[in-house]
Amino acid sequence: MAETATHTADHASEHGHETSTGLTNNKLAMWLFLGSECLLFGGLISTYMLYRGRVSDGPHPMAIFDIPFTSVSSFVLLMSSLTMVLAVSSAQRGDDSRTNLWLTITAVLGATFVGGQVYEFTAFIREGLGFSTSLFGSSFYTLTGFHGIHVSVGVLMLLSTVGIIRKNKITGNKAEVVELVGLYWHFVDVVWIIIFTLVYLIPS
């Protein structure tokens, strides 16, 4: 081999052209992870679909869903996808301050969504839908709670990325790191697109 130095592992993947497919390891891994997550959320959504009409006790779904409220928080999450993609785009141009700005806005929108979910949960509990009240209650809180945890992890990742970029402590390719966080964030958003329709808009 003509090269005097041979890099391995993550190191090589920072320069995608050194890998067999020309794609970076990190991005391949992220897409695989998202493919896997499809089956995770698929299972939770199916459980909810199977059980949503089974209300032995407590309120029925259509009696407590606040569609206008959830529509607004869905819209907030949807728009956070736009700000996220603008962050990725800024990162690819190498514009750190814009990147940080858009990432922060995305995190704020995400936190707003989580806040809305917390408010929704407390309202539902007040109206008599506990975690153990009915099959509907258990499966509803599990599905949306799981999604909420994903959003919260995403918010943490966004804020951490901002911090790391500001301190210039990033390991690896900056634009790629932002892009990976973005892929995760958009996935969480598309899961909500499905939940919003199947759980909230279609009456059981």
């Binding site: 459980t47 059980y51 089974r54 032995s56 006790d57 975690f131 153990s132 009915s134 099959l135 209650g137 258990s138 499966s139 599990t142």
Partner: peptide, 12 residues
């Protein structure tokens, strides 16, 4: 945590 997924008496 008291969920009811497999509780047949609740209709599971």
């Amino acid at each position: 945590y008291g969920a009811t997924f497999f509780d047949v008496s609740q209709g599971a």
